[in-house]
Amino acid sequence: MTPRIEEPLADAASWADWFRGQIPTLPLLRQSKRKIDEEATHATEINLHQLAEVVIGDPILTLRTLVQLQQSKKGETRELTSITSALMMLGIQPFLHQIHALPTVESALADQPVALKWLLSRVARARKAAHYAHDWAVLRRDINAEEVTVAALLYEINEILLWLFAPKLMFLMLSLRKRFPDHPIEVLQRKVFNTTDLELRDAAIARFNLPTILKELMNPQNAENPRTRTVLLATRLARHLGRKGWQHPKLEADIEAIEQLVHLNRELLLRRLDAPYEVWPRFGVPVPPTSESKDHPTKGNETQ
C-alpha cells in the first residue's frame, strides 16, 4: 500500500528526505508499464531509443531513472541528464526487471480517483511543457536539447509527488487558493506544507543528487539564461493552456516572449504551437484562406 502523508512535514529538507526514501518503490504510469512490458517481451530486439522515449514520457519514471543512475555511479563525476545514456549505464535487463515489480500510479491512487485525475492532469501538463521546451531548444540549436527537455518535464514533479503521497494536503491547498485567490501562492504553500515549491524543488534536487544543471534550468532567478527561459516559458504556456485553453488572458505575453526567444515569425510560431485559426487575429496574425482553415482542427481546453 502506498504510504500517505496526512500532516505537513517540518520543512523542505524533511519533504525531500521523505521523497528520497520512496524512490525504490516509486510507481510508474500504467501506460508506461504496459509499453515497457511490451518491449520486454522482445528483450533481445529491444530498441534503446524507443525505451528512452517511454521513460521521458513519464515524469515519475524519469525521476526514478535519474536518481538510480546517480546511485549507481562509482567514482564517476560526470553529470548525465540523457535518459538513453542512463539506461545504457543501468543496463536494460536490470531496468526491465525492476520496472516489472513496480506498482502503477493508477493502482496507488485507486482509492483517490479525484487526486488521480489531478495528478494525471499535471503529468499531461509536464509532457506538454517538455514537448515545447524540446522544440524550442532545437530551434535555438541548443547543444543539449535533452537537458532542457528533462528540466521542463520535471518542473512539475513536486506537485505530482504531492498528489501521489499527500492528496489530503493538496486538497487543502486547492481549497485555500479558492478562498484566498489574492494571497501570494508562496504564503499558502508555506501554510499547508511548511515550505514553498521553489524551496522544495531545490531541496529535492540536492537530496536526489540530481545534476546541478537541472537546478539551474529550473531556477526562475536564472531567467536571463536563454536555456532556463526556455524551460520557464514552456512551463508557463503549458499551464495557461491547461487552465483556459487559447482563451487565457496572458497568452499574448506568452507568445511575445516565445517569439523573442526562438526568433520565429509569429505566423510560423502559431502554426508550430498548433493554435486554432480563430485565435490568430488576437495575436495580430490574419486568418488564412477559408479553404485552408477548414482542414485545421479547433483545439479545446485541456484538463484543468
Score class of each variant (00 low, 15 high):
residue 87 L to S: 06
residue 52 A to K: 00
residue 297 P to Y: 13
residue 109 L to D: 12
residue 100 H to I: 06
residue 125 R to P: 08
residue 220 P to T: 03
residue 100 H to L: 11
residue 160 I to Q: 00
residue 249 P to M: 10
residue 139 L to G: 02
residue 234 A to F: 05
residue 89 M to T: 02
residue 96 L to I: 04
residue 107 S to W: 14
residue 133 A to V: 09
residue 135 D to L: 12
residue 217 L to N: 00
residue 108 A to T: 09
residue 199 E to S: 08
residue 233 L to R: 01
residue 206 A to T: 12
residue 54 V to W: 01
residue 184 P to R: 12
residue 223 A to W: 02
residue 294 K to A: 04
residue 9 L to W: 03
residue 190 R to A: 04
residue 300 G to R: 02
residue 248 H to I: 11
residue 93 Q to D: 10
residue 82 S to K: 00
residue 211 P to I: 05
residue 194 N to D: 02
residue 217 L to A: 06
residue 158 N to Y: 04
residue 52 A to V: 03
residue 45 E to C: 12
residue 184 P to S: 13
residue 96 L to G: 04
residue 30 R to F: 13
residue 7 E to R: 05
residue 193 F to I: 02
residue 248 H to K: 06
residue 237 L to E: 02
residue 99 I to T: 05
residue 102 L to C: 07
residue 173 M to D: 11
residue 167 P to F: 15
residue 44 T to Q: 09
residue 85 S to Y: 08
residue 197 D to M: 01
residue 112 Q to K: 12
residue 265 N to I: 09
residue 136 W to D: 01
residue 228 T to L: 01
residue 206 A to C: 13
residue 134 H to G: 11
residue 195 T to V: 13
residue 106 E to L: 15
residue 184 P to G: 15
residue 174 L to G: 10
residue 221 Q to D: 00
residue 303 T to L: 10
residue 111 D to A: 15
residue 159 E to Y: 04
residue 30 R to V: 12
residue 210 L to V: 14
residue 152 A to E: 00
residue 45 E to F: 13
residue 270 L to P: 01
residue 269 L to K: 01
residue 101 A to S: 12
residue 87 L to T: 04
residue 271 R to H: 07
residue 83 I to E: 00
residue 220 P to Y: 11
residue 40 A to H: 05
residue 65 T to E: 04
residue 31 Q to F: 15
residue 218 M to I: 09
residue 109 L to V: 15
residue 188 L to N: 06
residue 168 K to H: 14
residue 226 P to F: 08
residue 74 K to S: 05
residue 266 R to Q: 03
residue 79 E to H: 06
residue 301 N to S: 04
residue 299 K to Q: 05
residue 113 P to E: 14
residue 123 V to H: 07
